[in-house]
Write a protein that binds this DNA or RNA. Structure first.
Lengths: 203, 203, 203, 203
DNA sequence: CATGAATGAGTCTTCATTCAT
DNA sequence: GATGAATGAAGACTCATTCAT
């Protein structure tokens, strides 16, 4: 079963979602089609299972980072979040790339929606605990932040960007996340710390 | 033929990329399959053409905004850019949504890459002309910025978000773009100087 | 289309309903599977169409006989009915035999029910018009009569009975139909004709 | 195994012959497929066994009735015969209905033929012993009579007829059988003579 | 003996593409 | 140029049967 799962990813990476056939996956897994269908009721379920695992891995990585950074300041949160997200996405680049197509194909499936939601909720919780700042519209912020990470990373994956570029983008995403979080929040009544907000006010 | 093109989008919207067939498109366009094949060598070409038009529309909208904002300050650029991008993407929501799947399917096609590149170049040119700021790593900034807009917008489209949410995100994206551009650049020493930007224009 | 229809019957005759495949039918018809599916939405529809034609042929033959014998006496009706039914069933023995399996497979389909009904109604109308007799429970009589013809004929078909046997059964069925009709009815008030009824009374 | 046998009938009743699978039968019987194949060499054998049992039950019921009515008069024979046949067929209506499809599928199998033959022979022997009448063409009569009972009963089963209809048909079948037997025979000259029937018994 | 996972040939069905009219 | 019937390769899925445990 794990073999089929793995084979599915390999086929996805090699020929893409459009040319993936159950027979090919079975062959690659070293089993017969019949066996494949003993574990997955149909092709769609197979793809969904594979996609789910991938999405969950990323979501869990994000959730974990969120829990770890609880109550830190916004800058630390931004850095940890970006790092966790990229680590998860780049853990298996080719799989991430291949599954992008699957996610699109499975379109409006609640699977994708569910994972997005989980991430956003973790994010909202995290931001609400920020030591230095207070957010008005938590849901919008977390939704925009999540999207703003996903977009560029997707771009890197699709373009098969080389490591230096990935690193540069990583740094920029951190900068952006921090800047955005500061810009979309107000300072908490804690002591003397109005430097960066003041900067913001000037724009 | 425009009718076929239009029909293709309609079918895409109604049944999705997976269930789109050349016959269905032809029927919807009020012509025969044979005629369809007179204008497009194969299904792939048809989809590519439709996708290209869509992407070009967005790219051109962005390029136009870039030209218009040349030499303004970063804050104005951010606002104009986000507005132009969202206007283009939300001009035909269902088409945008439907074509998302097509873009994924056509995967690494150079079509998508080409459009991304064009946008990034426009963006780079634009940012280089900013009256108040100077960027070190223009390419990374424009690439990250572009991705950071695409991501959240994609999310809105897939979730079929209602107008108020779209507006909220629009505002946040503007905030984010501005904050990011400021955070990733340094203040220009001399106020009114448009020499290097002007040079840029000439390329 | 007629070719496919015909081919379907041939395949049915040669390999039986269980081993009939759409590909085989198409091959036999000298067309491709695709063509077959242009005329019949699926295998079931094809079989249903073939069965329907067969059943309709028989039903129409019976209906015609019923119309022709209107208002004759019961004995003549019985003879004509049996003759019409057998003629129709034995017009294409192998097809009749082959379609028996199809009818069973398509089981409770309203197709079979509809045809049975049509026959029974014709029969009821016919019997109601008998010049010499009056029936109390027309529906039961026609239903039993129809079944009593179908049963033995089915037996002949399945056993591939030789002509002499068929003829003998034909004669017996006529005898039986006549005897049954007389036994299940009462004489009409018309003049002096009480011979056969009297026989009935004695049983 | 009886459990498998029984399970087979249940599956037949519930999902029909077309959707019957060996696995489903095994599951229903509470054993594994492997075990099923220990008792039946293949699916066909299983179905044949089940069908055979059913047919034999009916045949034996008829044979028993035939033995019991030996040397009675034709009217009593008809009544007893019809009653025995219907009792057997309606003992398990759903099973009878389900097995109809199996019988058709197993088509020209000698199984069906063998059972028909046994019934016809019993019937012939019975009729030969009739105290009041003498038949010329015993084989044709019994074959026609058997068929004339099977046909209407099959119709009732397929239509899932309600009890009153079944009763009405029962009565009509009795009338018909009696009428037919009288019409296809000649009166015996000597009343009490059981020589030839007795001879028949010895064969 | 029982088990049930594995097998893979065999079915139905779809659809991009062609080409004679 | 337009048409749309014909094509047939390809794919999803089923299920009778086997055999190692």
């Amino acid at each position: 079963m794990g073999a089929i799962h793995e084979a599915c990813i390999q086929v996805l990476v090699e020929v893409g979602a459009a040319r993936l056939t159950t027979t090919r996956v079975a062959e690659r897994a070293g089993v017969s089609v019949g066996t494949l269908y003993q574990y997955f009721p149909n092709k769609h379920a197979l793809l969904a299972a594979v996609l789910e695992q991938h999405l969950l891995r990323v979501v869990e990585s994000v959730e974990e980072a969120c829990l770890t950074c609880q109550e830190l300041d916004v800058a630390d949160m931004a850095a940890a979040l970006v790092a966790a997200f990229m680590r998860a996405k780049f853990a298996d680049v080719s799989a991430s790339r291949a599954l992008y197509g699957v996610a699109a194909e499975l379109g409006g499936s609640e699977l994708v929606a569910r994972c997005s939601d989980r991430s956003r909720q973790s994010l909202s919780r995290l931001l609400a605990s920020a030591s230095d700042r207070r957010f008005e519209d938590l849901d919008t912020v977390s939704c925009v932040l999540a999207g703003a990470l996903v977009g560029p990373v997707q771009g890197l994956l699709m373009a098969d960007a080389p490591a230096p570029v990935v690193d540069a983008v990583h740094r920029h995403l951190t900068t952006m996340a921090e800047a955005y979080l500061l810009a979309s929040s107000m300072p908490r009544s804690t002591p003397s710390k109005a430097a960066s907000p003041r900067l913001k006010n000037m724009n």
